[in-house]
Amino acid sequence: MNQETTSESIAKGRTLGAFRCLNCFVRISPPKGATTYKCPHCGFEWRVSWPLPDLPRIRGPVWEVNRRLAEEAIAKKKKGKK
């Protein structure tokens, strides 16, 4: 029962209060309670939520850039059809 399993050994490397930036995949730690956070490595800005007081989560991107791209993609598709 006491012999450590692979999963248990991996658990030892767990970091609390951090997540991986979903753009550059570097592990980053937003200040406690922050609702937005800019990745110090790649500069990508995230909205942050805290499911638990010491457990941050990327809530989503800040939308402006993505919205423009989506609109362009749909417009291009419609244009191609005409």
């Binding site: 809530r59 939308w63 749909i74 598709k77």
Partner: peptide, 26 residues
Amino acid sequence: FIWGATNTQGLVRVRNFQLNQLEDSD
């Protein structure tokens, strides 16, 4: 949360298969 994480990256089907992210999905 899984949908949230994958949509954040752009790994979901939107408008059947026309986009890979639902933007402004707050």
